[in-house]
Protein backbone atom coordinates (compact mmCIF):
# COMPACT_ATOMS: atom_id res chain seq x y z
CA UNK A 1 0.00 0.00 0.00
CA UNK A 2 1.38 3.34 -1.05
CA UNK A 3 2.06 5.62 1.89
CA UNK A 4 0.86 9.20 2.09
CA UNK A 5 2.77 12.12 3.50
CA UNK A 6 0.71 14.37 5.74
CA UNK A 7 1.48 17.77 7.27
CA UNK A 8 -0.50 18.83 10.30
CA UNK A 9 -0.32 20.83 13.47
CA UNK A 10 -0.58 18.77 16.64
CA UNK A 11 -1.02 20.52 19.97
CA UNK A 12 0.21 23.72 18.36
CA UNK A 13 3.38 22.29 16.90
CA UNK A 14 3.93 21.40 13.26
CA UNK A 15 3.97 17.65 12.70
CA UNK A 16 4.61 15.57 9.63
CA UNK A 17 4.00 11.90 9.27
CA UNK A 18 3.56 9.24 6.68
CA UNK A 19 0.78 6.71 6.87
CA UNK A 20 -0.95 4.10 4.78
CA UNK A 21 -4.29 5.20 3.28
CA UNK A 22 -6.29 2.88 5.56
CA UNK A 23 -4.57 3.96 8.76
CA UNK A 24 -6.69 5.86 11.24
CA UNK A 25 -5.67 9.08 12.91
CA UNK A 26 -5.65 7.13 16.19
CA UNK A 27 -3.16 4.63 14.77
CA UNK A 28 -1.01 7.48 13.53
CA UNK A 29 -1.05 9.28 16.89
CA UNK A 30 -0.29 6.14 18.88
CA UNK A 31 2.01 4.17 16.60
CA UNK A 32 3.77 6.77 14.48
CA UNK A 33 3.90 9.82 16.73
CA UNK A 34 4.18 8.17 20.16
CA UNK A 35 1.11 10.03 21.43
CA UNK A 36 -0.36 7.06 23.31
CA UNK A 37 -2.52 9.20 25.59
CA UNK A 38 -5.42 8.65 23.19
CA UNK A 39 -6.69 5.13 23.87
CA UNK A 40 -8.35 2.55 21.66
CA UNK A 41 -11.25 1.06 23.58
CA UNK A 42 -13.30 -0.12 20.62
CA UNK A 43 -12.06 1.23 17.30
CA UNK A 44 -15.65 1.85 16.21
CA UNK A 45 -16.59 5.18 17.76
CA UNK A 46 -18.59 3.65 20.60
CA UNK A 47 -16.41 4.44 23.63
CA UNK A 48 -14.81 7.87 23.14
CA UNK A 49 -11.45 6.89 24.66
CA UNK A 50 -9.67 8.17 21.53
CA UNK A 51 -11.34 11.60 21.54
CA UNK A 52 -9.32 14.45 20.03
CA UNK A 53 -10.29 17.67 18.33
CA UNK A 54 -9.67 18.25 14.64
CA UNK A 55 -9.95 21.91 13.62
CA UNK A 56 -11.77 22.52 16.88
CA UNK A 57 -14.35 19.74 16.40
CA UNK A 58 -14.53 16.89 18.89
CA UNK A 59 -14.15 13.58 17.06
CA UNK A 60 -13.19 9.98 17.68
CA UNK A 61 -9.73 9.66 16.18
CA UNK A 62 -10.50 6.01 15.38
CA UNK A 63 -13.10 7.26 12.89
CA UNK A 64 -10.77 9.63 11.05
CA UNK A 65 -8.20 8.53 8.50
CA UNK A 66 -4.69 9.77 9.07
CA UNK A 67 -4.70 11.01 5.48
CA UNK A 68 -7.65 13.30 6.22
CA UNK A 69 -5.53 15.23 8.70
CA UNK A 70 -3.64 17.08 5.96
CA UNK A 71 -3.52 20.74 6.93
CA UNK A 72 -5.60 20.18 10.04
CA UNK A 73 -5.07 21.39 13.58
CA UNK A 74 -5.27 18.51 16.01
CA UNK A 75 -5.41 18.67 19.78
CA UNK A 76 -4.86 15.64 21.99
CA UNK A 77 -4.68 15.01 25.72
CA UNK A 78 -0.92 15.51 25.57
CA UNK A 79 -1.49 19.15 24.71
CA UNK A 80 -4.00 19.94 27.41
CA UNK A 81 -1.66 21.03 30.20
CA UNK A 82 0.55 24.04 29.61
CA UNK A 83 3.94 22.83 30.65
CA UNK A 84 3.71 21.99 34.32
CA UNK A 85 0.40 23.77 34.73
CA UNK A 86 -2.52 21.42 34.55
CA UNK A 87 -5.75 22.54 32.92
CA UNK A 88 -8.47 23.23 35.54
CA UNK A 89 -10.29 20.11 34.32
CA UNK A 90 -7.23 17.96 34.85
CA UNK A 91 -6.77 19.37 38.33
CA UNK A 92 -10.42 18.93 39.22
CA UNK A 93 -10.36 15.30 38.08
CA UNK A 94 -7.48 14.55 40.44
CA UNK A 95 -8.84 16.56 43.35
CA UNK A 96 -12.34 15.13 43.08
CA UNK A 97 -11.39 11.51 42.44
CA UNK A 98 -13.06 11.55 39.04
CA UNK A 99 -10.92 8.70 37.78
CA UNK A 100 -10.31 5.16 38.92
CA UNK A 101 -8.50 3.11 36.29
CA UNK A 102 -7.95 6.25 34.22
CA UNK A 103 -8.13 4.74 30.76
CA UNK A 104 -11.23 6.69 29.74
CA UNK A 105 -9.90 9.85 31.39
CA UNK A 106 -7.96 11.37 28.45
CA UNK A 107 -10.99 11.10 26.17
CA UNK A 108 -13.34 12.48 28.78
CA UNK A 109 -11.06 15.42 29.51
CA UNK A 110 -10.74 16.28 25.82
CA UNK A 111 -14.51 16.02 25.40
CA UNK A 112 -15.30 18.05 28.51
CA UNK A 113 -12.88 20.78 27.49
CA UNK A 114 -14.54 20.95 24.09
CA UNK A 115 -17.95 21.40 25.74
CA UNK A 116 -16.80 24.13 28.13
CA UNK A 117 -15.35 26.08 25.22
CA UNK A 118 -18.82 26.12 23.64
CA UNK A 119 -20.88 26.27 26.79
CA UNK A 120 -19.08 27.49 29.91
CA UNK A 121 -22.06 26.84 32.17
CA UNK A 122 -23.69 23.54 31.19
CA UNK A 123 -26.41 21.90 33.25
CA UNK A 124 -25.68 18.42 34.56
CA UNK A 125 -28.03 17.06 31.92
CA UNK A 126 -26.28 18.89 29.08
CA UNK A 127 -23.00 17.59 30.38
CA UNK A 128 -24.23 14.01 30.66
CA UNK A 129 -25.58 14.05 27.10
CA UNK A 130 -22.41 15.66 25.76
CA UNK A 131 -20.34 12.95 27.42
CA UNK A 132 -22.67 10.08 26.50
CA UNK A 133 -20.16 8.90 23.92
CA UNK A 134 -17.42 8.57 26.53
CA UNK A 135 -17.84 5.28 28.32
CA UNK A 136 -16.52 4.95 31.85
CA UNK A 137 -16.93 1.60 33.55
CA UNK A 138 -15.34 2.41 36.92
CA UNK A 139 -16.92 5.52 38.37
CA UNK A 140 -20.61 5.43 37.53
CA UNK A 141 -19.96 8.98 36.17
CA UNK A 142 -21.00 10.69 39.43
CA UNK A 143 -17.60 12.11 40.32
CA UNK A 144 -16.83 12.91 36.67
CA UNK A 145 -19.92 15.13 36.43
CA UNK A 146 -19.06 16.83 39.72
CA UNK A 147 -15.43 17.41 38.72
CA UNK A 148 -16.36 18.96 35.36
CA UNK A 149 -18.78 21.29 37.12
CA UNK A 150 -16.11 22.31 39.62
CA UNK A 151 -13.68 23.07 36.78
CA UNK A 152 -16.38 24.90 34.81
CA UNK A 153 -17.14 27.10 37.81
CA UNK A 154 -13.46 27.82 38.28
CA UNK A 155 -13.03 28.65 34.61
CA UNK A 156 -15.99 31.02 34.74
CA UNK A 157 -14.26 32.71 37.62
CA UNK A 158 -17.13 31.86 39.90
Amino acid sequence: MKTIQVSTTINGDPAEFICTPDETLLDVLRNRLGLTGSKEGCGTGDCGACSVTVNGRLVCSCLVLGAEAEGAEISTIEGMAEGETLHPLQRAFIEHAALQCGVCTPGILVAAKSLLEKNPDPTDEELRYWLAGNLCRCTGYDKIIRAVQVAAAEMRGA
Binding site: G45, L58, V59, C60, L63, L115, A132, G133
Partner: peptide
Protein backbone atom coordinates in the same frame (compact mmCIF):
# COMPACT_ATOMS: atom_id res chain seq x y z
CA UNK B 1 -26.85 9.85 15.40
CA UNK B 2 -24.06 8.60 17.61
CA UNK B 3 -22.15 10.63 20.15
CA UNK B 4 -20.98 14.22 20.24
CA UNK B 5 -17.80 12.88 18.67
CA UNK B 6 -19.69 11.18 15.85
CA UNK B 7 -21.69 14.39 15.34
CA UNK B 8 -18.41 16.13 14.63
CA UNK B 9 -18.09 13.99 11.51
Amino acid sequence: IGSTQVQGR
